[in-house]
Amino acid sequence: MKKHLKGIVLNIENIAKDTVRLEFSTPLESILPGQFVSILIPHKTLRRPFSVADFCLNSAFGTNNRNFDSILEENAKNKGAITVLFKLKGDGTNYLKGLQKGDMIDYLAPLGNTFTIPDNKNNPKNTASASGDITIKTTDARGCETVDRINQTVMNGTKGMDKDSEPSGAIETKAVACAIGVNSSKKALLIGAGIGIAPMLYLKKILDKKSISNYLISGFKTEEEVIKGSDGVVIGGSVIDKVQNLIDEFRPEILYSCGPKVVLQMVCDIAKKNELRAEIAMEKVMACGIGVCRGCVIKLEKDDAIKNASVCADGPVFSGAEVIWE
């Protein structure tokens, strides 16, 4: 159920060039991957939507924060934490960048639909241990359970690569597969482009939790903009160039993607060519965020009929095959 909520900033940090990670408290007990929050920006008419990049329950957040009388009581119930990642764009994101621990955030959540999660029955190979993924579960300072995978190591490996000899900065996907030691079957291939990695990270966490084997490839313009958490990273070149290889190698059942329109369009084309289902998370400027103003509609083709769909309420996740591109 959508709610109008107030939260407290638990953490805010720069994680890459012009990229900020913001974590705030929430009384919500669950959020689905693909869903987003809509944050109030003082002196702005429109709220700003951001994908949930992580959500965890049982953060140790309590009353030892700065004193905000009116919302403190409400926030004593706030045992969860939502993380968003954002790229600095204009007034809204620059305002958010200036927030500090303990500051208050006014937001609507959870908004939108979710990625569909394939079921992992009938495929015993696809458990984390069988697929050979190395998963290290840790508990962080706030008591949030995080899943750090070996992929961080791979990422660091990429960073160390000689960029001159690899103009696109791309890593050899084969080498990555080797490094992780997978049997090369992955149910889901996740493709993040730029800040589009945000919802992919939360989706990946959920897939991992459900032991659905997956691989996240993401692309960034420059090395300074790389956000951690992928299994493979492309720097400079197009992440799309790697996708066909990954499909051939992992034979995924489904592609998930978030990023600029051009990338999503290409993901849909590749999915079609390979007869795969693609689910893409779209963006549109939003006003209400809940499906009433019809400001964020796109066109879908379903059962031979063309219909409007709101990105905020019917989406943001759509089946790539149905989207009609403007």
């Binding site: 008419t45 400027v285 964020c296 409007n308």
Partner: peptide, 19 residues
Amino acid sequence: PGNEGKRLFETSSGLINRI
């Protein structure tokens, strides 16, 4: 079905819509 193309434009202290 409403209008094609961009339907919202935020202005200083306001909003332009062409739903």
